[in-house]
Design a protein around this nucleic acid. Structure first.
Length: 326
DNA sequence: TAGGCCATCTGGTCCT
DNA sequence: AGGACCAGATGGCCTA
């Protein structure tokens, strides 16, 4: 048996896969077949020497024409692969926008985005399951589980956490959540949603801005933000607050109305394009007694289709719907 | 400079 | 047969 080597091995590998499959009928390389016959027939067709006849497509020499075709094919494959990866990155960007802590300037890495998304889903599921306002610390810890330190800091900064809260908290995940992890000041995070003019609507709107950053937890559960509205500091794409309504606010179904202004609870809009079956009116979303104290107007959040062009329904739609109707 | 992240190329495999 | 998907390799860029 001959040992394939170097260039020949490469051409055999690729050629075995594709060259011999579809392009042999191009007879622009005349004489090749005969060369191949000579080339391979002597080496592997010998039944006399006891060796089994080699199966599979014949190996063919790389002629200039074939090399050219191979090159073109490879270029096409590369272009497809690039497109595919770009699509994948676009999807990741969409995901970045719906997980807590979206920042144009400090993008989460791919892996961190996926981890944070997983944690976010988990945290929301826990809220649904328990039906109670989560503890801030455990909530953040859930969000930050498995995240790198910079990302943890970013999340903490996004939440505008009072780092003192964590000084007394036991560390989790082998010390990952030590107090030093929450050096909020070092990761100032401007909350995109705050730039939304909806943030300033209505007297019942929750003060969302604190020193230019978003305290999503505050916005969800009521906190101590000073109402500095409509700042142009950050005009990037909107990120949902780390709260239910941001993630599940889907689409404006009607322009803001006085009724909406009054309905200051955690409103949820669902507007699904799925079979047109779930044009659900806004549901007031109330989280426990403390949650009642404050809320975010439903227009505070990015229309769902802005980041979900296909109008996917949130996975927990039915559960949420049922829960918030109770 | 090492390490992390990323984009791209590439070959193999699977599916339609 | 061709495209999608995947994983490995490679090199560039950035940051601590």
């Amino acid at each position: 048996m001959r040992e394939p080597s170097g260039f020949q091995l490469e051409t055999e590998l690729t050629g075995a896969h594709s060259e011999n499959l579809g392009e042999d009928d191009d007879d622009d390389d005349l004489g090749e077949d005969e060369e191949d016959e000579d080339d391979e027939g002597a080496g592997e067709g010998d039944a006399e020497d006891g060796r089994p006849k080699k199966r599979g497509p014949k190996k063919r020499k790389m002629t200039p024409a074939r090399a050219q075709r191979s090159k073109v094919r490879r270029q096409k494959a590369n272009a497809r692969e690039r497109t595919r990866m770009h699509d994948l990155n676009s999807a990741l960007d969409s995901l970045r926008k719906v997980v807590p802590c979206y920042s144009k300037t400090q993008k989460l890495s791919k892996i961190e985005t996926l981890r944070l998304a997983k944690n976010y889903i988990w945290a929301l599921s826990e809220i649904l399951r328990s039906g109670k306002r989560p503890d801030l610390v455990s909530y953040v810890q859930t969000l930050c589980k498995g995240l790198s330190q910079p990302t943890t800091n970013l999340v903490a900064g996004c939440l505008q956490l009072n780092s003192r809260n964590f000084l007394t908290e036991p560390c989790q995940e082998s010390g990952r959540y030590a107090s030093s992890s929450f050096s909020v000041h070092s990761y100032p995070y401007p909350c995109a949603r705050l730039a939304s003019p909806h943030c300033q609507s209505g007297s019942n709107s929750l003060p969302l801005r604190t020193h230019g950053y978003c305290s999503a937890y505050d916005s969800l559960y009521g906190g101590s933000g000073s109402p500095e509205y409509n700042s142009p500091e950050y005009e990037g794409p909107l990120s949902p607050p780390v709260c239910i309504n941001g993630n599940f606010s889907l689409k404006h179904q009607s322009p803001p109305s006085p009724e909406h202004e009054k309905g200051y609870h955690y409103s949820m809009h669902y507007s699904s394009g799925l079979a047109g079956s779930r044009q659900t009116p806004a549901h007031n979303l109330v989280f426990g007694s403390s949650g009642m104290r404050s809320g975010i107007h439903n227009e505070n959040v990015l229309p769902y289709h802005d980041v979900h062009p296909h109008h996917e329904r949130p996975p927990a739609y039915d559960e949420l719907n049922a829960f918030f109707h109770n």
